[in-house]
């Protein structure tokens, strides 16, 4: 017993006062891409689109367009672009309200005011304030490789302490306000995901976490389904997208808070 108390004192208090304090993430972390929007006509090699493993890059008349919904943040394009037009910043806040807003065509904003929750990119499809007071999410892994799942689960641990925002993972979709979905949605999980969706009482939200859930990611060419959440659930049902393979836990927390942030949190 004494040992437990002694060890408890050693382990200390670890929760970070996010979002008022920003986390320290590895300097090698690839965050929000920043793009120089000038024509690529003089560059015929297009090494960037050729090296991209998931076809996330397109060359438009105004320069590269990077779809974060397909990107693995592998930095291959950053390394090959002769004009350094694609740069990955260190910004972990990547969530978007719409699929289109995930397509990056311009420079990243020069930092966000740190003392706030940044709203996600794009405009919400509908008023989400109903969910801001308390949020119960049912996690459904549909072909997820356990990296996204691990980083979703880790939000319950001491560092992040999801519970202090009034957010919890519910054991059943019937007790949930919405689904948090990871994985590319395999053919064999299609029915189970539809069942879980139908069991969630309306109004309900959907958060798609990870590149797989958004677009199928590295599995998009599979013959076993795997085209992402929107290939199975009704169109336009996803309220927040969190890109990354897997997203950093802070990116996931930011994504969830872009639904469930309430003024009361700011009064601390």
């Amino acid at each position: 017993m004494l040992n437990i108390v002694r060890e408890r004192l050693h382990q200390g208090y670890r929760t970070l006062n996010y979002p008022f304090k920003q986390p320290v993430i590895s300097p090698r972390f690839a965050g929000l891409p920043s793009i120089t929007p000038t024509s690529c006509a003089s560059c015929s090699a297009h090494a960037c689109t050729n090296c991209c493993p998931t076809g996330a890059l397109a060359i438009t008349p105004d320069g590269p367009a990077l779809d974060m919904g397909r990107c693995l943040f592998c930095r291959a394009c950053e390394q090959v672009c002769p004009e350094k037009k694609i740069i990955f910043t260190h910004e972990h806040r990547l969530a978007a309200y719409t699929r289109e807003a995930l397509i990056i065509k311009g420079p990243a904003p020069n930092g966000f005011p740190d003392e706030s929750v940044r709203p996600a990119l794009g405009e919400p499809r509908r008023n989400l304030s109903l969910f801001a007071r308390s949020l119960k999410l049912r996690e459904v892994s549909a072909g997820g490789c356990m990296a996204c799942e691990a980083d979703v689960n880790v939000l319950c641990t001491l560092i992040y302490d999801l519970g202090r925002f009034g957010i919890e993972y519910a054991a059943s979709p019937r007790h949930a306000d919405g689904l948090l979905i990871t994985g590319p949605v395999t053919e064999n999980m299609r029915l189970a995901l539809l069942d879980a969706w139908e069991a969630t009482p309306d109004p309900r939200i959907v958060i798609a976490v990870g590149t797989c859930a958004i677009s199928g990611g590295t599995f998009a060419e599979s013959t076993e389904g795997c085209k992402g959440v929107e290939s199975v659930l009704p169109e336009g049902c996803v309220d927040v997208y969190v890109p990354g393979c897997p997203p950093n836990p802070w990116s996931i927390l930011d994504g969830i808070l872009s639904v469930a942030w309430k003024k009361a949190h700011a009064n601390r």
Partner: peptide, 22 residues
């Protein structure tokens, strides 16, 4: 089997630079 994504088949069909991320 619920997680079956056809990985072995994908490895033999994808271009080489896409295989390692898979």
């Amino acid at each position: 089997g619920f997680q079956h994504r056809g990985v072995e088949h994908l490895i033999s069909t994808l271009p080489p630079h896409a295989v390692l991320p898979l």
